[in-house]
Amino acid sequence: MDGLTGSAVTLRVLKGTPASGTQEVEYAVPMVTGMVVLDAIHYVQHNLDTDLACRWNCKAAKCTFPLVKDLVTDVSRNYEVNREIPPFTHAPDDTGPWRIQQVDIDRLYEYRRCIECFLCQDVCHVLRSHNYADRFYGPRFFVRVAGLEMHPKDVLDRTDQTREEGGLGYCNITKCCTEVCPEHIHITDNAIIPLKERVADRRWDPVRFIGRELLRRPASPAAEATPALPDPAKPPRNRGDWDEAALTNVDITELVKQQIRTRTRPWEK
């Protein structure tokens, strides 16, 4: 092994399951230059105890979700929340291929860096101290929603869902999620606060509310009978430019539900 230092370190690993009980087991692991704890765990797993269970997405730390076995914790709630969020949805008649300007997707790269280590979920006091998993998505999923909401080709509006079902208001922006993120995603500044501002646009801005009401065109009976679908020759500029009636007519919600029902996720195989 390259970089061997000639010395060894004793690793004490908590092994077991909640049903069988847990106990500390010691392993002697040769020290290698640049080694971190996760490397030592992998050494044990590959050479000394192939039965050792270990879930990892990064080299950040361990998390304190409910224990499954050894170093594996139960993070399934996160996958349930993930399923509640409507995925990327383009306009029905705008199926691509698309040419998207770099300036329009620069922001999205940061959200894509997430490796789903769930440290942010673990450290968030709304989930950790208050056990609001039933009413609060958590930082990782606000990052996902932000990435979808800001996508130039996504036509769904998840603002109300994020506020109501996602419990965005419970976040009091104490930034612990940002502090622990191993990918240095500015979760609070670049995902949660922009979402809060979008909610403020919708619910807390009387100027915008009055503007929306004044600019709302009265729907004629004819228009209601045959709502105009977006004209492919004149692509809308922003989500707000879509005729909401047309989107309702094609029942995007049902399309999304169908996508959610039919898609397969790696952890569901």
Binding site: V103, D104, M150, H151, D154, I193, E197, R198, P235, N238
Partner: peptide
């Protein structure tokens, strides 16, 4: 943060 949203953060597509 609010100004950041109001001047441009609230847009989804800048180029168009």
């Amino acid at each position: 943060h609010s100004l950041r949203h109001l001047v441009g953060g609230g847009l989804d597509c800048y180029s168009n």
